[in-house]
Simulated scan of single mutants.
Amino acid sequence: MKYILLVLTFILGSCASAPISKKPRRVQHVYLEPVTNRTSEESLDVIFTRVANDVFSSDPRLKVDTKPIPDVTIVVKPSVDYEYETAVGFDKWDTAREYRLTVGVTVKLFKYGFKEPFKTFKLRRYGFFNAYGSASEIEEKKRECFRRIANQIFRETSEKMFVETKGKTE
């Protein structure tokens, strides 16, 4: 009996003192849904979807799936919630020549097959473009500013998917 108590004490003692370590769950497979445009600005969904595909495809930590895989794939569902531009630079005739473009985006992460997101990011970024040139040149500068902002947003989203806190990946 004494021998059994000694063995039980050893087993229970070793279990209690041994740290239980789970391997952190890493996001590896992602499926990108097309970006939803909730603004009145045309083609933002196309610009942001292309940039998201480029950013996530170029991240060596991720594999972008063309079809989601159950129990493996994380579905990334972004939406552009708002955009507005503010004149910040003027010439000597008080004509606006530089604009600040602000964009707000919501990115939701879902486990494939689930309806509720397990993580939601609300991000807001801004960039600047100048208003020198023809109307088509100014519009192209604005679109390039949207691309830069989208690149910042999706790079940050990619990084946030790998942030580790207390040994667990969020």
Rank of each mutant, 00 (worst) to 15 (best):
K63A: 01
K77D: 06
P70V: 01
E139M: 14
E116Q: 15
R143T: 13
Y99M: 10
V46Q: 11
Y3F: 14
I4Y: 07
L109T: 01
L5Q: 06
I74L: 00
V88E: 06
D81Y: 04
P70A: 15
F128L: 12
S57W: 02
S21G: 00
K2W: 13
Y99E: 08
R155M: 14
V64F: 00
I74N: 03
K122A: 03
T95P: 06
K142R: 15
K168W: 01
G133C: 09
L5G: 10
L6M: 15
I153T: 09
G89T: 08
R100M: 10
T73H: 05
G104P: 00
F48P: 01
V107N: 05
L44W: 10
F162K: 05
K108P: 02
S134M: 06
K166R: 13
K111W: 14
R26C: 03
T39L: 12
K22Q: 15
R124S: 09
E144Q: 14
F110T: 01
D91Y: 15
R97G: 01
S136P: 02
K92W: 02
K168R: 07
F110M: 03
G89H: 13
G167C: 11
P70G: 11
S57G: 07
R25E: 13
E170H: 14
V55T: 00
K23M: 15
I47G: 07
L5K: 08
E98T: 11
W93G: 05
F162L: 08
M161Y: 09
D54W: 05
F114K: 11
T102F: 12
T49K: 14
K122F: 11
L6Q: 12
E139P: 00
R97K: 15
G104M: 10
T49D: 08
K111S: 05
L8R: 09
E41N: 15
Y84C: 07
N37H: 15
W93C: 01
K166C: 04
E41C: 00
M161W: 06
E33L: 04
K2H: 13
A150E: 09
F129E: 07
K67I: 00
I138E: 12
K160C: 00
D54V: 02
P78W: 05
L109R: 08
V103Y: 10
M1E: 15
Y132D: 08
A16D: 11
A52K: 03
F118T: 07
I47V: 11
F154P: 06
P60R: 01
F128I: 03
S21K: 14
G113A: 05
D54T: 03
Y82F: 06
Y126W: 15
K122P: 00
F10D: 00
L6G: 12
D65Q: 04
Y99W: 11
F56K: 01
L44R: 11
M161L: 13
F121R: 10
K108M: 07
P78T: 04
G133R: 08
P70Y: 04
K141G: 07
N53I: 00
K22C: 03
A150P: 05
V76C: 02
K168I: 04
F56W: 05
E156N: 02
V80H: 12
F48K: 13
Q28R: 14
R148D: 07
C145L: 14
K115Q: 11
I69Y: 02
Y84K: 14
T169M: 13
R125Y: 12
E156C: 09
A18D: 04
L32W: 03
S158A: 15
R25M: 09
A18Q: 09
E98L: 06
R26Q: 07
D59K: 05
V35E: 09
L5D: 10
P68D: 00
K168S: 10
V75W: 03
